[in-house]
Write a protein that binds this DNA or RNA. Sequence first.
DNA 1: TTTTGAGTTGTTCGA
DNA 2: GTCGAACAACTCAAA
Length: 471
Amino acid sequence: MSAYDAGLFWFRRDLRDEDNAGLHQAARACRRLHCAFVFDSAILEALPRADRRVEFIHRSVGELRESLRQRGGGLHVVHDDATAAIPRLAHELGVDAVFANGDYEPYARQRDAAVEQALREHGRRLHLAKDQALFEKDEIVSRSGRPFAIFTPYRNAWRAALDDFHVEAYPPPDARVLVADKGGLPSLPELGFEATDLSRQALPCGMSGGRAQLEAFASRIDDYAEARDFPARPGVSRLSVHNRFGTVSIRAAARLARASRGGGASTWLDEIAWRDFFFQVLWHHPRVVHEAFRHEHADLDWPGDERLFAAWCEGRTGYPLVDAGMRELLSTGFMHNRVRMVVASFLTKDLLVDWRQGERFFARHLLDYDLAANNGNWQWAASTGCDAQPYFRIFNPEKQSERFDPQGEYIRRHAPELARVPARYIHAPSRMPLHEQQAAGCVIGRDYPAPVVEHATQRAKALALFRRARD
DNA sequence: TTTTGAGTTGTTCGA
DNA sequence: GTCGAACAACTCAAA
């Protein structure tokens, strides 16, 4: 009943051998199945030599390889340009077909098209399965058959579809099908990378790490709706990096939400719907990678300069919640979601810097960086996107700080120079009288910067910028 | 077919 | 102090 004698499963952003749609499909279609992972030199070349993500992937691939070996199989690990490596490996192993899980990013689509073309020249096929998303491409469309451009109706249709959707886990591949690997796992230095501080971050890698995070979140999910906006609290799932690299299956996340059924689970399910929504937006509109989704905001002339952008990058804008967020990003590779919104709003609406600069900075530093979600959310914050925030809805960084970090716990954790600032000044330390600054060991202009811009003034400028674009 | 209402994440202003 | 309105424009679904 197997369609092929031998096949090759190519792992990409799905680093697990449990509940993996494409792997399951491949194992059923082949009598013998090889597995491979490619450290794609086309991607790695562009990265700095110390990169937490590469280390996360490296460790997760190592664990995946061990797990496959325990099942009687293995994982070929190659360091090369994937476009060349996969067709070559398919040839060397003498397989009839290659299997993988689909990817919605323009680079990945191009790469897969090139691989498919090269395979076809030798009579081999490439089969792509749906695994990253619960629903993809044209699975959720409006009544007119067009892709949704507004989240809420998308979400309603998505949830209705989920009610009828089979989210059982795909069983792991049958041991009799898997074939052992040859060759080793290249070390991080062999790939051209240095070790990072990843082991000091409270972030378990691999399938085992993903499982632990998911279980830990299961005990907090009922409080998610209330707790998720407070960055000092353990309210959010912290599963984003595992969803990014597939060390947790998105179907496992959906099963957890379904099993919980409370308000927290429902709110969290909406976040999963946002993820699918942005995958779908990117799939249908790849141009959003480079330009505003809304044409009338495509040519906004953002006046923000390099000095302001640098202050934002380094977390020294003089707005404590913004600075704490940027420092969290730099020191951990993560930033709490509420704070992501605050710093994104601040960069675009207060510093008036082009959202693409912020997007690129996040892309470089976020461990959980995902093109679709990052782009979608930046365009949301900048009011340029698909179902974006209205341009006049501008976050006040001080107000957000008072609401979501009232005692400044989060601020103090990430901006230690503010640790001794009294709570009544923690959201606007420059208003502290000098003697209190001295008592707190935080003199404005010496230990902590004065605000680089004034919110009210910049808000008015942002409104004018958008008004001009509309006229 | 047309109309109507509602829409992730907010702030400011004036009564 | 609290409250509602205003801040646009467009998509989508329901009436």
